[in-house]
Design a protein around this nucleic acid. Sequence first.
DNA 1: GGTATGACTTGTCCTTAAATGG
DNA 2: CCATTTAAGGACAAGTCATACC
Length: 589
Amino acid sequence: MKTCLRFISRLIYISAERNKVASFVSSVRYYYAAAAKTLSDCRWEEGKSSDTQKWSSLEHKGPYFPPEYEPLPDNICFYYDGQPMKLSPATEEIVTFYAKMLDHEYTSKEVFQNNFFSDWKEEMTKEERKLIKMLSKCDFSQIHKYFVEKSEERKNMTKEEKQVLKEEASRLMEEYGFCLLDGHREKIGNFKLEPPGLFRGRGEHPKMGKLKKRIQPEDVTINCSQDSKIPAPPAGHHWKRVQHDNTVTWLASWLENIHGRPKYIMLNPSSKLKGEKDWQKYETARRLKMKVDSIRKQYRRDWTSREMKSRQRGVAIYFIDKLALRAGNEKDDESADTVGCCSLRVEHITLHRRLDGQEHVVEFDFLGKDSIRYYNKVPVEKQVFKNLKLFIKHKDPEDDLFDRITTVKLNKTLNECMPGLTAKVFRTFNASTTLQDQLNKLTTEGMTVEEKILSYNRANRAVAILCNHQRAAPKTFEKSMQLLQEKLALNRSRCIQCCVKSVSESNLIGFQKAVQRLSEQLKKLQLQETDREENKVIALGTSKLNYLDPRISVAWCKKHQVPVEKIYNKTQRDKFAWAIDMTDENFQF
DNA sequence: GGTATGACTTGTCCTTAAATGG
DNA sequence: CCATTTAAGGACAAGTCATACC
């Protein structure tokens, strides 16, 4: 109750307008949605309507537009077939996008080149199109060199010049970076519109190299409240539309031209709106904790169902639960070929009756979100193994493993088990549960703060491994590791020298002090080394930011006297302000 | 029921800023 | 104090899922 009150007091700002209270009530109401279901229709409807309303007043300055294209100086030129050629500004701008990327390996890919060339041709003038027939005859090297030099210049700017730029940026932030939501100044997440350029995409993307067009004010829809000061479009322009829809949280939107999907300008994670949503997410995951035993029983029953679709659903939910797989929506072939649970194909698994001394092993090998490889060998229950054999019977490698289910049907089932339950809740639930368990297991009293932090990172790492959060090994990893090794060696020899010296001088107190100091340093370095090595290809950030209930970490910090700054940096502390405020040391997920 | 659309979360990488240590 | 290394922050792509529509 104390915790709850503290949180309420944070949410109800000092002035405590009615809408603040209402919105807090709506959050609570969401949490008790299940209970509300049993109440009268009227109450339920009320809960619903206040849940879809996201704000009662919203005012902002609109998006910030990137600077106009600055044509190349006269001495810098594009060459076609060895001949210098002056291009129209629009065509030239596109050329600069390509020229800037020349160092990147992907400009050598055929898909990239073809996409680029055909989009580029579309923007050329008639005359240019007549002349420029082959990309291989295009020479961008002078333009490339020009931009390399320019970036070099930027790097070599004086302190004063850098300071000027910094001040300009902060002015921009002041002017465009905040909005007024229900009377409170809130930080915007991405107030700058995305500049034009060449689309890269992740993995083997069929659209790589396509032109991402410049966004015009005429493409942008503004969302704000009716009575607010409507943002002014750039001089001589007008907005596509100005709307006043308080059931959505975005401030501006436009359609990006690569996939034709909407993009938005939204609030920063530090905002109250986002914070409450985040809190709700973890509360849903905690409700799953209460319900998970019966859900597990249910899907095990499904493994022996007479119906194929039930068996498939049972195995799919088992994977989602046990392996933290994503739901795996269907994708069109206009994007990279990646899969999640429901979109797994026969070719993505190999069944081993026996492997490395284990029975019923499933070998997974597929590309998941962002084309990150998921590779895992997992022993599964005998019945799961049997079912998988059944699912792949008479199928080709490129056929769907789960051909009788979709993410929509799967989520429908989950929602019937528990209101608000979807596939992704399992990831949140399993991640947070793992962190809690690992922290309980790895932390002991008597550890130094450094040791505790290593334990925390290890717990965090266990989660990242579960969720398959990988990163490319840092470019300078080997080098910096070696450096650390050298430091360690130096430290060790110093320790020995010091001993010898002290003994020869019969300086016992000096000896003890020095040895203690050096051995502490040594230990610290060793911890650092271990941590770094274990983290080589694991990304901790994603799980920390998106999957781990921050209250677990805050409670752990309080309980073990670790300053919360050691675990969360400034941005993270802002995002998790709600948790830092409301959590005491006794919180358990 | 299935599909399309829209809104929102999750994810990695790259640039910039800050920290470190010689 | 400066150069180098490391961490933070930002950019923006790519997922999930609810709802609209048919």
